[in-house]
Amino acid sequence: MNRTFTSTLGIVAAVLMIAALYMVFLYVPNEATQGLVQRIFYFHVPCAWVAFAGFGIVAISGALYLWLGDQVWDDLGQAAAETGMVFCTLVLITGSIWAKPIWGVWWTWDSRLTTTLLLWLMYGGYLMLRAAAEETPNSARMAAVLGIIAALDVPVVVVSVRLWRTIHPAVLLTRQGGHGLEDPRMVATLLVAMAAFSALFAWLLMLRLATLRTRARLNRLTLELALAEAGD
């Protein structure tokens, strides 16, 4: 059942990704001022969306782990943090590649870029803590707390273009309250890309959860074997 669901998710993600690529390269018109390079945005924004969703899952599952103490929440938090980091890294890389021809620099200490980098560093710390510490309930609790604190930066990243002076384009949330996409084809392309990345994220999360479940089974078997050998 679980394997079938994961495989179905993978197929859905692949189909949606092909549709998104078709729309980005063959359907959507060029943006008037930025030209061809603006098309980076159609995958850059969905990467940010799934990274933020991933970090949101880390915070929620962290809170549930602290409350209920069930291992399943700790596993979900760990898997979501790792998958979210992959997409957060892609946000920073694709943003930099877009910035070079548009702003003339690879990086600037703009409020949105800085808060996103801060987010990336905090979840990098979360993953390093998980890798370095022994797998004990205490280290899982510390990771849960760190995951919750780091997620507080997500809303700051989202509203940073409204809170501070910034040169980052406000696409989904402009100062005027609308969105920055004038052509309906641009909106449609962005929505399909968002759906594709959501399915891709869910698929990767399921794959990562499967490895964590297998590792837990391995740990149980190691213990059983040690007990059996001791009693032999």
């Binding site: 030209g35 061809l36 390079v37 098309r39 980076i40 995958f43 850059h44 990467c47 992959v86 890294t89 892609l90 890389i93 694709t94 590649i97 877009w98 070079k100 021809p101 891709l200 990767l204 794959l207 990562r208 490895t211």
Partner: peptide, 23 residues
């Protein structure tokens, strides 16, 4: 600026591919 567009999409798919292989 096609080079920038190409680089961005190549990096996205390369990184996802490497992550899937890793898992």
């Amino acid at each position: 600026n096609f080079g920038y567009l190409f680089a961005a999409y190549t990096i996205i798919f390369a990184m996802i591919f490497v992550y899937v292989l890793f898992i």
